[in-house]
Write a protein that binds this DNA or RNA. Structure first.
Lengths: 359, 359
DNA sequence: GTCAAAACTTGTAACGTTTCTATTTGGAAT
DNA sequence: ATTCCAAATAGAAACGTTACAAGTTTTGAC
């Protein structure tokens, strides 16, 4: 009696509401079976449990008819897995990260994972906050570029054994999976190239904060290139730009730098944004590239090959980085407890038209 | 008795496991109160229900001590709100989308929403699949650029009244919130500028598929510019590039186009990728910009201002677009049932050095 | 001293799954 | 006929929250 009424009510509400929520229970009720059964069938576990073929068909038919889709949130809660990865980068609008993101997204998607993307904006506190947020949202793993100075904060907020992959930047004292390139070596080779071309007064343009591993290593590469050739190196030619100013397109420091050091004939910039900033400044100052200034930069962005002159650069294997990062993350998620591995990929020094021998 | 055993077990497991999961119940058990109480306190509803200040303090203290963070998945299930937005773009690695994404991400984040980001890759089936995925994941709203030809598919899979915002591209026959720019007008003005400079043989470089609203409108703008001035327009100068080929950097079509139509003195490109492709081709052909070819393009990307020559372009208000999109989405989520509004923002025609009067 | 209202707290259900442990039925083996 | 097993299904618990409807106890007014 009571059941009957219940049944009628459901029918009624079905007729009235435009879009009734369709759940396991609705299918089960419709067919007068248990939701356990429905779940089993729809998860392909029916045969193993020898569920009547006929019943299976009915369930599947009804599910299709109602266009049933399992609620992934409920599923996530029950199974303790959300099939979501957190991707935390310094700045998603930076082409370097945007392109890696794309690979990561596609790799993740083919494995059934979605991506929650966030940018730390090079702020340690934001990064902390965002990592916490991702953990609260129960992501199954995090792939990130850290902006941290010290490992303590991450150690504190990320549980040991939580699937984590750092890429691009590593964090000394923080043992985790990592994928990136040999920034020092790549820079050294690029600077050696400039030295080989006869340049001695080579500027090095980098960013604050200097403790970020990639920036630090690039600077080391610059220094060791000179060392390797036994040439003296001056602090004067090292310019460290403020990240915020760069973001705000305040390039005064660079102009100043050029004016104060007119003897500089070549310049290495530590990333794509700096190269672009430099292009603008140089243009304003009326310097010609490469005649007056040879330029070589870390990171390749699309337009570097089409500018006049085309910019020589160190290209990172972006796709590969994304690929490895996702693989590492999924590996940890699936096999649990894998000791952390580091993968160092090859960079490519691309010679274009922005460098030439000193006159 | 039974309770006591339970208690001991919990204590025991606490002692043994490195990181015990900390939930409302654990706090409640520790303090011998109900989880309802804990929930109430931690959600700031304690005062309204006149819960003892002392109790509140204990709860909060213990929560901090254990570093309790509510499980957002459970919360999402219970409350029917995940505080997650889906962001579906054509290609996250395209700077245009990447920059909008950044704004969207920040806006969303300050409102407590996270972003699941995905790229449709200009594929209708992928788009369909991704939208479904987002819905299965119970996102509270979707912000997207559609790649669809017809509205049917979206109508079928997205429930009416579901918080949805289209941006950049609209879909005729699909009534939804929308934010974008007047592509036709912007293009018309740009082409008029070229006409004003004396150019008559003006190429128009665009992408397939042509039914995408932005591309279609831009083409219309090109045509109506000529119409407005009563100049004849040739189909010959309209080149529609295949998206996949462009993505694969296959620029043969463009080269061919220039060779077949040497009389062209100016070119309008429909987006940033096309402009870049064009720069490369032009360079290979030994044409000079702007002397041999005036170029003006839709979309501004950072490097356009620093290339030599700097590229004239139509800039869209990226930040504003993202801002409006998020606002529209949240509005729908919060107020439910708002009739769909369209916001058309102003573009800016930026004159740089890539255009000049015909000789 | 009674009674209502305030202060304080709790148990239970629910969100939509999956998983674990039953239960029922019919038939084959003893 | 009993026992046992496989086939077929269902009930209940659990994931971690919040919401609802009830409890208690205390206070203040008459």
């Amino acid at each position: 009696m009571k059941n009957n009424l219940h049944f009628l009510l459901k029918r009624f509400s079905f007729a009235v509401m435009k879009t009734r929520k369709v759940t396991l229970s609705s299918i089960a009720d419709d067919l007068n079976v248990s939701k356990t059964l429905v779940s089993l069938v729809l998860n392909g576990k029916a045969d193993a449990l020898s569920i009547n073929k006929e019943t299976q068909k009915r369930v599947i038919a009804r599910a299709n008819e109602l266009n049933y889709k399992p609620n992934q949130v409920a599923r996530g809660l029950r199974m303790g897995q959300t099939h979501t990865l957190g991707l935390l980068v310094a700045d998603i609008s930076n082409p370097f990260y945007a392109r890696i993101t794309r690979t990561i997204e596609h790799m993740a998607e083919t494995e059934g994972y979605s991506l929650i993307v966030c940018s730390s904006d090079e702020s340690e506190s934001r990064e902390k906050h965002l990592v916490k947020m991702l953990l609260d949202r129960q992501v199954d793993g995090i792939i990130m570029t850290t902006t941290m100075h010290q490992p303590e904060v991450l150690k504190e907020i990320i549980p040991t054994q939580f699937p984590l992959v750092l890429f691009d930047r590593y964090l000394t004292g923080f043992d985790s999976h990592y994928v990136g390139v040999d920034n020092e070596q790549a820079t050294r080779n690029a600077v050696k190239h400039l030295l080989d071309l006869g340049h001695r007064n080579i500027g090095f343009l980098t960013l604050t904060p200097n403790y970020i591993s990639t920036l630090y290593d690039r600077q080391q590469g610059y220094l060791t290139a000179f060392e390797a050739y036994n040439f003296p190196v001056t602090d004067k030619y090292l310019l460290q730009l403020d990240y915020v100013r760069l973001k705000n397109k305040d390039y005064n420091q660079i102009t100043q730098f050029f004016l104060e050091n007119p003897e500089i004939t070549a310049l290495f910039t530590s990333n794509n944004n700096l190269a672009i900033a430099c292009l603008k400044t140089v243009k304003e100052l009326g310097k010609r590239i490469p005649e007056d200034l040879s330029l070589i930069t870390f990171d390749d962005v699309e337009c570097f090959s089409y500018t006049a002159p085309a910019i020589s650069c160190i290209a990172q294997p972006l796709e590969k980085i994304g690929e490895v990062a996702v693989k590492m993350a999924l590996q940890q998620i699936k096999n649990k407890r894998i000791d952390s591995q580091k993968v160092i990929l090859q960079t490519e020094l691309i010679y274009r038209d922005s460098t030439c021998a000193i006159n």
